[in-house]
């Protein structure tokens, strides 16, 4: 236990350092984009936050399957933590996207596949939290949570394709070949480096937050047990 919390502390320190480095690169090192100006810099943490959100939802579906297979309550804590963190970062992703869209697309919001899918995903996982709130028995809560995490995750790509069949105006910066989409730009090496560091930083941030969230969940479970013991 002692060794483990020292590893966690180490992870926290590394996370802080990489986050500081990523922030420095975004603010100072990365060049200002030629046409969009400073707002383009929102892109780095916008995509990184979306990445963290997806990591969270992916981790939750893995934890859900693992829970159903093993019935270890620790998997449930992983799933819940991952979804909570995923929700926070997906929200950051949506709001920053909206802030970027205002000057570039001249609107806060469009019904583009990615925006719409991101929002529906946010609703799916908000529903996950509401489902859990409605169940008192911890075992059933974990079981239903795992099932819904799986069902919700499967629906995401289908939602995306259903809206994709309309035309998209969202720029595909990585690997996208269509320069006519408004707001797209090609990354200079300095931009690419900044982007890479931001992704790494947010991955560390995700790992460290998830670990803390799991420990919080374990503490919560201990308190629950104490309560039950006192009642009898």
């Amino acid at each position: 236990m002692k060794a483990r919390s020292r590893v966690l502390l180490g992870l926290d320190v590394v996370t802080l350092l990489v986050m500081a480095a990523a922030t420095y690169m975004v603010f100072i090192y990365a060049p200002v984009e030629r046409t969009m100006g400073l707002v383009q810099k929102v892109f780095y943490f916008h995509v990184a936050a979306g990445w963290t959100g997806m990591l969270g939802f992916l981790a939750a579906v893995v934890a859900g399957i693992a829970y159903l297979a093993t019935r270890k309550s620790s998997w449930d804590l992983v799933g819940l933590g991952a979804i909570e963190i995923g929700l926070v970062f997906a929200l950051i992703n949506i709001i920053t996207g909206s802030i970027w869209a205002r000057p570039i697309w001249n609107t806060w919001w469009t019904w583009d596949p990615r925006l719409t899918t991101a929002t529906i995903m946010e609703l799916v996982y908000a529903a996950y939290l509401m489902l859990r709130q409605g169940i008192e028995d911890p075992e059933r809560r974990a079981r239903f949570g795992a099932v819904y995490a799986i069902v919700g995750f499967i629906s995401v790509p289908l939602t995306f394709f259903s809206i994709r069949i309309y035309r998209t105006i969202h720029p595909v910066v990585i690997g996208g070949g269509d320069p006519t989409v408004s707001g797209s730009f090609s990354m200079t090496p300095a931009m690419g480096a900044t982007f890479g560091v931001a992704l790494v930083a947010f991955s560390f941030l995700f790992a460290s937050l998830l670990w803390h969230r799991i420990r919080l969940g374990q503490l919560g479970a201990q308190v629950e047990q104490l309560k039950l013991k006192l009642m009898h």
Partner: peptide, 29 residues
């Protein structure tokens, strides 16, 4: 599937649409 879960919860009257609608959007579209 979701209704089977929803009826086993405390908030069952309001829960089903909240659980169901976001995942059936592809069908609806």
């Amino acid at each position: 599937l979701l209704a089977t879960m929803a009826v086993q919860t405390r908030t069952r009257d309001i829960l089903l649409p909240i659980l169901l609608f976001p995942v059936v959007i592809p069908v609806l579209v």
